[in-house]
């Protein structure tokens, strides 16, 4: 590596450090904005479902008599617990304890 390039990378690192000063704050702000926006998608789903459910007298497809709850309940439990497990694994990874990370991942 030439001397010029080494110096340029040092300068670059200094500039980046100056920039990254506020990067955590930016990420937090941006993520909140993103979540607010995403919540509107689910709002529109709920609106669509509510209108459909309230205005349609017989909305079941042919051959279906009621809403299934058992399998969706199991699926929901698996989905929610998986995010918990991933969170724990991520904490272990953050603490660099890779054995515990592997057991959770």
């Amino acid at each position: 590596m030439t001397a010029e390039r080494a110096i340029s990378q040092d300068t670059e690192a200094a500039v980046r450090q100056h920039q990254e000063h506020d990067e955590a704050g930016n990420s937090k702000f941006g993520f909140i904005v993103f979540l607010l926006s995403e919540s509107v998608i689910f709002l529109s789903f709920f609106v669509g479902y509510t209108i459909f459910k309230t205005t349609t007298t017989d909305w079941y497809p042919e051959g279906v008599t009621g809403l299934e709850t058992r399998e969706p309940l199991i699926n929901t439990i698996v989905l929610i617990s998986s995010s918990f497990v991933i969170y724990v694994a991520e904490r272990y990874l953050h603490d660099k304890s890779f054995g515990a990370f592997g057991s959770f991942c």
């Binding site: 926006s37 919540s39 509107v40 998608i41 709002l43 529109s44 789903f45």
Partner: peptide, 8 residues
């Protein structure tokens, strides 16, 4: 605020 409605 608007685009998620179209996506939905």
């Amino acid at each position: 605020y608007g685009l998620p409605s179209l996506t939905g």
